[in-house]
Amino acid sequence: MHEATSRSTLKLAVAPGVPSSHLSALLARQRAEEPDVALAFFEVAGDVLLQGLLEGRFDIGVSLQDASDPALKSQPLWIEDMAVAIAPRFHLLDQAKLTIADLQDHTIYRWQAEACPLLDESLISLMPVDRENVQRVPSFEMMALWVAAGYGVGLSAQSRIDHAHGWGFTMRPLADGPFKVVTYLQRPYAQVDSVIERFEQRALQVAGTGSAW
């Protein structure tokens, strides 16, 4: 039995790009183990999430953007490898793994919500200076549309590409790197609350198992 809860609602903010299979496992565990606490769910941009935590509008956040503010506790949860999404008839498909250099002659679709600074630095350094190869897209679905139609390749989290079977493209790992996208759990350091602490522990447990419980 938990001690009496100090709140009846937990305000959870989630930034775009957070891998959904891990998050759904966490939310399912929260609902099963603490059904008396309602979840108020907010999907907001990463900078809005951090500011909202500081201002008390959110209790806890899950984001791909690390927090540098000393007032916020930020810890990594699950880590995803970035990979390449390729259409079935694309000629690079005959290679088991690809490097960034292998992609430089093709249009690359990049969903910027999946923050990976090292990958973006590599793209900038290796792309031809005379033309813009990297196309920023507003969603994974838009990236998938262009890749499936054969207009170029996409860069996204490996698990997200693996789960997108219906789009008709396949996945190839990146040989260089490592290129990782990291999901962080964030909350104010000054926040002392048993409900929030238990949610944090569940998040760490889900991250440790790497799967639904």
Rank of each mutant, 00 (worst) to 15 (best):
Q135H: 02
R89P: 08
D66N: 12
A45V: 01
E132P: 00
L26E: 11
F58G: 06
I100W: 03
A87C: 11
L118S: 11
C116A: 02
E80L: 07
P35R: 02
V37N: 02
S74P: 15
L64M: 07
Y109M: 05
G46Y: 05
P117Y: 13
D69F: 08
A87K: 04
R57D: 03
A71F: 09
T99W: 08
L123E: 02
F90S: 05
Q112N: 06
H106S: 14
Q75L: 14
D66V: 14
A40I: 00
R89E: 10
A83M: 03
A87W: 02
A67F: 05
A67D: 00
V48Y: 11
L98V: 00
S68N: 14
D130N: 02
G52Q: 03
W78A: 13
H91I: 11
T107G: 14
I79F: 00
A83V: 00
I86S: 01
V37K: 03
F90G: 04
P35M: 10
L49W: 04
R29C: 00
V129C: 00
L26D: 13
A101L: 06
R131V: 01
L50W: 01
A40K: 07
L72C: 05
P70S: 04
Y109G: 07
G46A: 10
D47I: 01
A101F: 09
E43K: 01
E80Q: 12
L39R: 04
F42D: 06
D36P: 13
D94K: 06
E43S: 05
A85F: 02
K97E: 12
P35T: 02
Q51S: 02
V134N: 07
S63F: 08
F41M: 08
A101E: 06
V44E: 02
W111P: 05
E33V: 06
L50F: 11
L126R: 08
K97W: 00
M127F: 01
Q30W: 05
F42H: 07
G52H: 06
A85E: 09
S63K: 13
E33G: 14
G56N: 08
A115Y: 15
I79S: 14
A38Q: 15
E80G: 12
V84D: 06
G56T: 09
I124P: 00
W78D: 10
I100R: 12
D105P: 14
A38K: 13
L53W: 03
I108H: 08
T107S: 15
E80A: 12
R89S: 12
T99Y: 13
S24N: 12
L92M: 07
E121D: 03
R31T: 09
L27T: 08
V134R: 04
S74Y: 01
L103V: 09
S68H: 10
G46K: 01
T99E: 07
R29Y: 09
P88C: 10
D130T: 08
R31H: 04
T107I: 06
F42V: 10
I108Q: 07
L77R: 07
A71C: 02
E33R: 12
L98E: 00
E33L: 13
